[in-house]
């Protein structure tokens, strides 16, 4: 069986937003008991991360660290055009993920105790973000 759905997330503040609950509810409604789930974000100015949920500061420090490696155009002067994706953000896209996948067991995401799914918005001029969720299994 294959389940596929597309969701549109409202613009989020720059930084990481926990979407674990939203994704879990979609997985549970899909009625696939065992398999894998892939999440894909359809742009390069945001990305998906699986990160620690125990300490609120972890997600922000991860974002801060990645921003040091590849600063977003907010932190540099290299904005080419507001309507265009800048080079720094393309660099950042290369070292982060546009998709994450995880197993599904008993109709739920099989995540570790401290694992959560985050959408990381890289710019302070966010837009609606389109996500496709594909679950394959039985």
């Amino acid at each position: 069986m294959v389940f596929q759905d597309t969701i549109k997330l409202a613009p989020q503040e720059k930084g990481a937003t926990d979407i674990t609950e939203l994704i879990s509810s979609i997985v549970q409604d899909a009625k696939i008991k065992t398999g894998t789930c892939q999440l894909f974000v359809h742009n390069s100015l945001s990305c998906l991360l699986i990160n620690d949920t125990a300490d609120e500061s972890t997600k922000n420090q991860t974002a801060d660290f990645l921003a040091q490696l590849a600063p977003s155009s907010d932190e540099t002067t290299s904005i080419i055009d507001e309507s265009m994706e800048s080079i720094p953000e393309q660099m950042s896209a290369a070292i982060t993920q546009s998709s994450v996948s995880f197993p599904v067991k008993n109709g739920k995401p099989l995540l570790g105790t401290w694992q959560g799914i985050y959408l990381w918005e890289k710019t302070s001029r966010p837009k609606h973000r389109k996500l496709t969720i594909t679950i394959v299994g039985e």
């Binding site: 991360l49 990160n51 620690d52 300490d55 500061s57 972890t58 420090q61 991860t62 660290f65 990645l66 982060t96």
Partner: peptide
């Protein structure tokens, strides 16, 4: 790093994972 309850390798481990 502010997240260091479990030692200096704690936050570094989360970033290495990402």
């Amino acid at each position: 790093f502010k997240h260091k309850d479990e030692g200096p390798d704690d936050m570094a481990a989360h970033i290495r994972t990402i």
